[in-house]
Design a binder for these strands. Structure first.
Lengths: 225, 225
DNA sequence: GTCTATAGCATGATAGAC
DNA sequence: GTCTATCATGCTATAGAC
């Protein structure tokens, strides 16, 4: 395996584990058993290296999502696609990618989850933009299948769904730190998200009964602002 | 307002916006209009400053959550507490805190969302530990109210619920970047999460029909590993 | 393509005057 | 408590030999 690719692997691993700013080029080149100058030779600078890490896996991933959605839509022939199918097209590819790509895939998805939760960082923008392209297609599909929801509510519930996925990814092996032994790439977790999100998306928009405050006043003093 | 508190505010703001490693003490002291050495004088070092940022708001927050849950449980007198009430006790305090604490509260919750998504960082551990104390109490309450779910599944679905909350926090003003104008502290978002999570938690555990692969083979070639 | 050497700068921390 | 000055170290990036 060439230096260029080893650098990519090392960067993927360390960016996912420690974050972008907390990882130095020295850390990366040491792990890749490459020279410090090699990053600059092959990629130009640190940020371009991060972009390369994303570029390698992100495009195939979103292409697979959209191909699945396309196929389901063709199958439905103009009718709304079943909710479970839309969710499957959206959520299954990253989980399957974790299987296919092994440790690298797991680390990559952890990085994705991380960046998605902290979108302000440099180049996170790049990633978000690419992701939003797919998101818009899915937004339309969800809206079609869930006509009882307003546009804004669909947006919010998609966000909740993405959150569940991204968090699972971000936690990686540490998922549900305490006791659940399930690995994030296991089917069990994917099915759990599918089930949870499907029910959540199908819920009525307005039927919420905010519970009354209990008898005991639970307000406590807190530091002012 | 004393220097010590101004440092806390500045650190809260910058850690939330840029992350811990990407923020320098010089940035913080400049924003706080304080001397570079003041951080060391008042807090010892950078990491202790982060811990102080957490300590200021985290304890009251979790205390409020648990007080609410206590009150609801007392009200229920041994019976399982209604799901909506458990969720309310868990989710409402951070949203209300954002109102009460103003900008500082919003930034703090953004920081919390950030750290929760990237738990490996230094001192994130501290935060996670404190949070887990509350989490265990809530896990028991959820399990009581949802006897149809296995222990592991309750854990996973709590995780999904927390994810929706944390992501909303992490995105702050940029929530649902595209079009939804709703501020994260608005009741609309809180209600959306409540509704979504309640339905998701109530769903059956096993009834999932994974959709069949569509006719068109959607597999594409991808880089090997 | 790979390496050494180093420029040029930012960082966290501290010593010590006031 | 606040300030200046500075240390020691780490960083990204690059120049130039091989």
């Amino acid at each position: 395996m060439g230096t260029k690719e080893r650098l990519l692997d090392a960067a993927e691993e360390l960016f996912a584990e420690r974050g972008f700013s907390a990882t130095s080029l020295r850390d990366i080149t040491a792990l890749a058993r490459a020279n410090l100058a090699s990053v600059n030779y092959h990629y130009g600078n640190k940020e371009a290296l991060l972009e390369a890490v994303f570029a390698r896996r992100l495009q195939p991933l979103n292409r697979e999502r959209l191909a699945l959605l396309d196929a389901y839509e063709a199958e439905a022939a103009g009718q709304p696609v079943e909710l479970q199918k839309i969710l499957w097209a959206f959520l299954a590819p990253p989980f399957r990618a974790m299987h296919r790509w092994g440790d690298g895939g797991r680390r990559f998805m952890q990085l994705v989850g991380r960046v998605y939760a902290a979108p302000i960082q440099p180049t996170g923008e790049t990633f978000i933009k690419q992701f939003d392209l797919a998101k818009q297609r899915f937004q339309a599909a969800f809206q079609n299948t869930l006509p009882h929801l307003s546009h804004d509510e669909v947006t919010r519930r998609m966000h909740h769904t993405i959150a569940a996925m991204a968090h699972t990814m971000a936690w990686g092996r540490a998922f549900c730190c305490l006791r659940s032994q399930a690995e994030p790439e296991s089917d069990v977790v994917l099915r759990s998200i599918l089930q949870f999100a499907a029910a959540g998306l199908l819920a009525a928009e307005t039927d919420l009964s905010v519970p009354a405050a209990p008898v005991t006043a639970a307000t406590s003093r807190e530091p002012g602002r």
